[in-house]
Amino acid sequence: MQIFVKTLTGKTITLEVEPSDTIENVKAKIQDKEGIPPDQQRSIFAGKQLEDGRTLSDYNIQKESTLHLVLR
């Protein structure tokens, strides 16, 4: 499925993911596309910070959902 990741600069990245993917996985995909190390990424969805060990389905993130990426 496709999800979108919006950065603070307003750029939107499209990722191909599975509901079973962990947040860690997703951060690795963002690193592949953007070169941002996962330890600098904070992902926010529906106002909640997403934890690395959880999966997209844990957070009820579905296709075409938009995550927000904040850098630390």
Results as ranks from 00 to 15, higher is better:
residue 62 Q to N: 08
residue 54 R to P: 04
residue 62 Q to R: 09
residue 31 Q to D: 07
residue 2 Q to P: 06
residue 62 Q to Y: 07
residue 66 T to N: 03
residue 72 R to F: 12
residue 50 L to M: 06
residue 58 D to I: 04
residue 60 N to G: 14
residue 18 E to A: 12
residue 29 K to T: 04
residue 53 G to N: 13
residue 54 R to Y: 13
residue 32 D to K: 11
residue 7 T to E: 05
residue 46 A to E: 14
residue 48 K to R: 12
residue 4 F to L: 03
residue 61 I to A: 00
residue 49 Q to L: 15
residue 7 T to F: 15
residue 68 H to N: 06
residue 71 L to E: 10
residue 1 M to N: 01
residue 36 I to N: 05
residue 17 V to I: 04
residue 19 P to N: 04
residue 19 P to K: 07
residue 42 R to A: 15
residue 58 D to V: 03
residue 24 E to K: 11
residue 50 L to V: 04
residue 36 I to Q: 05
residue 65 S to A: 12
residue 36 I to M: 08
residue 26 V to I: 13
residue 39 D to W: 14
residue 11 K to C: 09
residue 26 V to M: 06
residue 62 Q to W: 05
residue 65 S to T: 07
residue 71 L to T: 09
residue 12 T to E: 04
residue 46 A to P: 02
residue 7 T to A: 04
residue 6 K to V: 15
residue 63 K to V: 07
residue 25 N to S: 14
residue 28 A to P: 02
residue 26 V to P: 01
residue 69 L to C: 05
residue 49 Q to A: 12
residue 15 L to H: 03
residue 32 D to F: 11
residue 24 E to H: 11
residue 19 P to G: 08
residue 31 Q to R: 12
residue 67 L to I: 14
residue 35 G to Y: 04
residue 48 K to M: 13
residue 38 P to V: 15
residue 13 I to E: 02
residue 41 Q to W: 15
residue 63 K to P: 15
residue 54 R to L: 11
residue 5 V to S: 00
residue 58 D to R: 00
residue 17 V to E: 00
residue 55 T to W: 02
residue 41 Q to K: 07
residue 67 L to F: 01
residue 16 E to M: 12
residue 32 D to W: 09
residue 68 H to K: 07
residue 3 I to W: 02
residue 37 P to Q: 08
residue 25 N to C: 08
residue 48 K to G: 07
residue 29 K to Y: 07
residue 33 K to E: 09
residue 5 V to K: 00
residue 35 G to F: 06
residue 38 P to W: 15
residue 58 D to M: 04
residue 11 K to T: 09
residue 13 I to T: 00
residue 13 I to R: 00
residue 69 L to Y: 03
residue 69 L to W: 03
residue 53 G to Y: 12
residue 57 S to E: 11
residue 64 E to P: 01
residue 67 L to K: 00
residue 30 I to S: 03
residue 65 S to L: 02
residue 52 D to G: 05
residue 24 E to G: 13
residue 48 K to H: 11
residue 2 Q to D: 04
residue 39 D to V: 07
residue 44 I to C: 14
residue 13 I to L: 09
residue 21 D to G: 03
residue 52 D to V: 03
residue 60 N to T: 04
residue 21 D to I: 05
residue 49 Q to C: 13
residue 11 K to Y: 11
residue 34 E to Y: 13
residue 49 Q to T: 14
residue 45 F to T: 04
residue 28 A to D: 06
residue 22 T to G: 01
residue 42 R to C: 15
residue 61 I to W: 00
residue 49 Q to W: 15
residue 22 T to M: 05
residue 39 D to R: 08
residue 17 V to R: 01
residue 4 F to D: 01
residue 72 R to V: 14
residue 41 Q to F: 15
residue 61 I to T: 01
residue 19 P to Y: 07
residue 39 D to F: 10
residue 64 E to H: 14
residue 58 D to Q: 07
residue 43 S to I: 15
residue 53 G to D: 11
residue 50 L to H: 01
residue 1 M to K: 00
residue 70 V to T: 07
residue 58 D to C: 04
residue 61 I to V: 08
